[in-house]
Nucleic acid binder design. Sequence first.
RNA 1: CGGGGUGUAGCGUAGUCCGGUCAUCGCGCCUGCUUUGGGAGCAGGAGGUCGCAAGUUCGAAUCUUGCCACCCCGACCA
Length: 492
Amino acid sequence: MSKVITPRAQDYSKWYNDIVVEAGLADHSAVRGCMVIKPHGYGIWEKIQQTLDKMFKDTGHVNAYFPLFIPKSLFEAEEKNAEGFAKECAVVTHYRLKNDPEHPGKLMVDPNAKLEEELVVRPTSEAIIWNTYRSWINSYRDLPILVNQWANVVRWEMRTRLFLRTAEFLWQEGHTAHATKEEAIEETRKMLGVYADFAENWLAVPVIRGVKTESERFAGADDTYCIEALMQDGKALQAGTSHFLGQNFAKAFDVKFAGQDGKLDYVWATSWGVSTRLMGALIMSHSDDNGLVIPPKLAPLQVVIVPIYKGMEGLQKVADAVAPMIEALKKQGVSVKFDDRDNQRPGWKFAEYELKGIPMRIAVGERDLTTGTVEVARRDTLSKEVVKMEDVVDYVVKTLDDIQSNLFHRAKARMEEKTMKVDTYEDFKRLLDEQPGFILAHWDGTAETEEKIKEETKATIRCIPLDAVEEEGKCIYSGKSSARRVLFARAY
RNA sequence: CGGGGUGUAGCGUAGUCCGGUCAUCGCGCCUGCUUUGGGAGCAGGAGGUCGCAAGUUCGAAUCUUGCCACCCCGACCA
């Protein structure tokens, strides 16, 4: 077991923090609620970005970039959106500092440099983007607009957690404009599908696709679709959202287009995003008490080769022996590193790479050179196998695939095991405490009931699953009739 | 915003109640030798505005006052 990671059973929350910090993913910074994403963490984020970016391009989207600052007057234009985010906005009021006459060597805000109009640091970019779209759109021929941006946003959260909720975070936000409601809804659902595909086939995190209830909806949306994942401790994590924005922003920013019939109408909109929070989902889905576990498809480094030797000549012998293997692995598209650092011993390196979640490790000693074998270990099961040198490339390629799918199936089995159908409020409350997880239960569809349940149990309706089957039932809280089960959980 | 906690070397810490060769120990770092198949051993060495500011005192990591920062729990949360 790791010397630096708190075991999950002892303190899950501390375990999570330890993984993030000790695996070198991120650190707390000098700024409250803001983190430094370190190279290892950023390397994973870059993989996430590259993969998603290609998926967006493949579905017809292009990238653009809009300003970090939004004039307050624009920000407040879409009332619900503004109201929803107002409580957590950072605001720029001045544009200059000057020397503080009372405290030599210190600076102060220059009171003469007050901005005419305050600038809101974007918590999300609908306002600035829709204000821009007004000038991009005149006719149905200008539609659809399928734009994505990779950016940072700021939300002044009261309480933050590394990756899961930080005051500043990195994300992508897609903002599309359409001529018809149907097309916009189709786009909303299509992007939800992209997210679900990415979550399951790259992050190896199984998700439930669904629609948010009215009270959980994005501020300014007509409908919010989401993917919900379940972490090892039985708490839910919203992993991505895709919003059908109706004509709300088009109306707020007066974005109209002339149709084929010459009539003017407001444009239909969507927006969708995933953030560095996905890192949190990745960490909490797969990692163990030894450290991080990275799905091979997103690992910046997939295979590490650790030499075991005596003296520099011994190291050289091993290096010569593995050189062809490294070349062959690279040819297969496997990222591989030969760790020839002489200042750490093999055992130390083993522990280190396990902590960092590298999917596979190959140990090669002088002993192996005589037998023509190597020892290959996989991170997900921690099992080791002796493999003939000439079979290594095939074995590694196959095993990386196997780890990827094993991680997904393991997480999926866990999610299914922790998903329960419940028909009484007593069982509901008991399960939340005794076996936390997803709970499928009947709900009468009212915001009042939803709110009461939340108050009394801290569980929220994560979503109304898209694949929910029609089923007559009675609301667990009010006893009123219900047509389908919805998904409850305590959430991050 | 409420409650709790922390701030001493790169990291983790002892010392604070009771002021006086107390700046302790471990990891890490540097040098050398021996080691290397699961976080090496020995020997030597370097490294400090004790969060910041003011005060009390012959003397402050330690006492007083004020301030700052971060973490954890809760409230809050597209």
